[in-house]
Design a protein around this nucleic acid. Structure first.
Lengths: 123, 123
DNA sequence: TAATGATGTTTACATGCGTAAATGCTCGCG
DNA sequence: CGCGAGCATTTACGCATGTAAACATCATTA
């Protein structure tokens, strides 16, 4: 089962720092997201069921930590999109953003650097 | 309201060629997707409600054509992912695929070409 | 010890999605 | 003219999601 968008918000908090209590998570995510305590608890439980996080008892509360890594998640998500929209190839995706003028100077510079590194890697 | 994945399959058919009848669409998509007639009709109706396609009567049947363009759709989808996963910036995304060794020779060549074109464009 | 507060667990409910069956409408044929 | 074939529209149903209220549990304190 896939991680939903709301669930991913919780994961994000845990990826930034873990383990964390539900209270911590609520504090960090509640205001921005306008979520109540119950909402966060529910999401945590669904993530537990999906084996995406692990909970360890710590006295009266639980400490939650991610099981699914951010890398894994990003991998799944971006591969899905890439396959669906760009035939699984990266260049067309970048071309798309390029056409939309969505490449910043910084992006371009970094891309250039990246390509150079690839050059050096396998001469 | 967003276009769902199943709906996007229908859009894909219409983007390839339009206008088309429901029958055409079923013929093209049914076998691969294992969808019945009713399924395609439902999806078409949801797309109508979402104003993503337009239907024009043609005798006893309808001809369906996309209103939402593929460009618009790709734009929405990829921007969503980019924002959620890579802080809205393209370079980190490419770096991600690079780390995963998901850049083909061809990708690299095309990226290089793309960057060169950007160079020439604004000297 | 009984009430209170802190936590977690269960249940709920509206909405959207995937999938399709049931129903409705209309045109041409017998 | 009434009927069936061909389409479209409505309704259905189970499951995921977003959001949260209700309920359960247990330690602490009055």
């Amino acid at each position: 089962m896939a991680i939903s968008e709301a669930e991913a918000v919780i994961m994000d908090v845990l990826w930034r720092e873990a383990p964390r209590t539900a209270e911590d998570i609520l504090a960090e995510v509640g205001p921005a997201q306008n979520w109540q305590e119950g909402t966060v608890k529910s999401l945590l439980n669904r993530l537990l069921r999906k084996k995406a996080v692990h909970a360890e008892r710590d006295g009266r509360r639980y400490l939650y930590a991610p099981l699914l890594t951010r890398e894994q998640y990003v991998q799944q998500e971006s591969k899905g999109l890439l396959d669906r929209l760009f035939g699984g190839r990266v260049a067309p995706l970048v071309a798309h953003f390029s056409e939309q003028r969505k490449l910043s100077k910084k992006d371009i510079a970094e891309l250039r650097k990246l390509l150079k590194e690839l050059d050096d890697e396998q001469p």
